[in-house]
């Protein structure tokens, strides 16, 4: 469960102070599917980084389960990301020199999983996203949808509690978008994940149980709309 209290994040850019998050108070129960929408520069990605233990707030508290993320050092945050949080990015963010299988394995490397188990679990993860025939392919040899599937497999192979997706369908066509969303939803349902999706796409957002809107660093709750 996420608990955010008075979270503010400011940046200094070109002698200007930018407030990306402004006294955000938010609670997200375990297992919830949340969509975060808002205009560009509204603070969506910053909020996702706070939730994903990628950054610390300038002030306020971010808590995930029993871990106070806002007070942990870099090493502890990295350990939480390694164990509890999976990421899916708009640009897939695969390592271009590694094969699909090896990309998935990178998520298990910091957990100290043995080579054989790492390989087996990665193969299973790729198979679960429908890429059992693509283990040895480099990202450049895969389509956008396939690359995003590899990224989802990488995010889920460590069996995280939370899956954070930043515009996961932003670079995909509509058909592929629906496939990816169905995949994410099936994992959310089957594994009891907390799924938080940042999106511009209302069609994607409508699939979520809960919708948040963020603008000027302020978060507001939108009524959930069934798809």
């Amino acid at each position: 469960m996420y608990e955010l209290k008075n979270v503010t994040k400011t940046y200094n850019a070109s002698k200007r102070k930018i407030t990306a998050l402004d006294s955000v108070n938010l609670s997200i129960p375990d297992g919830q599917m949340v969509a975060i929408q808002g205009p560009t520069g509204g603070g969506k990605s910053t909020l996702l980084q706070m939730l994903g233990a990628l950054d610390r707030p300038t002030s306020g508290e971010v808590q995930l389960g029993s871990s106070m993320l806002s007070k942990l050092g870099d090493g502890k945050l990295a350990a939480i990301r390694a164990k509890e949080v999976g990421f899916v990015f708009q640009g897939f963010n695969l390592i271009p020199t590694l094969t699909a299988l090896e990309n998935v394995e990178t998520a298990l490397a910091p957990l100290g999983v043995s080579g054989a188990e790492r390989r087996q679990r990665s193969q299973d993860a790729l198979a679960s996203v429908g890429l059992s025939e693509r283990f040895g392919h480099l990202p450049a040899e895969l389509s956008g949808g396939q690359q995003q599937r590899v990224a989802i497999a990488r995010a889920l192979v460590k069996r995280p509690d939370v899956l954070l997706a930043d515009e996961p369908t932003g670079a995909l066509d509509e058909d592929t978008r629906d496939e990816i969303m169905e995949l994410l939803e099936s994992f959310w349902r089957d594994q009891g994940l907390t799924l938080i999706i940042v999106t511009h796409d209302s069609a994607v957002a409508r699939r979520a149980e809960r919708r948040l809107h963020i603008k000027g660093g302020k978060v507001t709750e939108l009524a959930a709309q069934p798809a």
């Binding site: 990421f87 963010n93 910091p110």
Partner: peptide, 8 residues
């Protein structure tokens, strides 16, 4: 990305 997936 590697830091995001937990690499120290």
């Amino acid at each position: 990305t590697l830091k995001a997936v937990g690499w120290s």
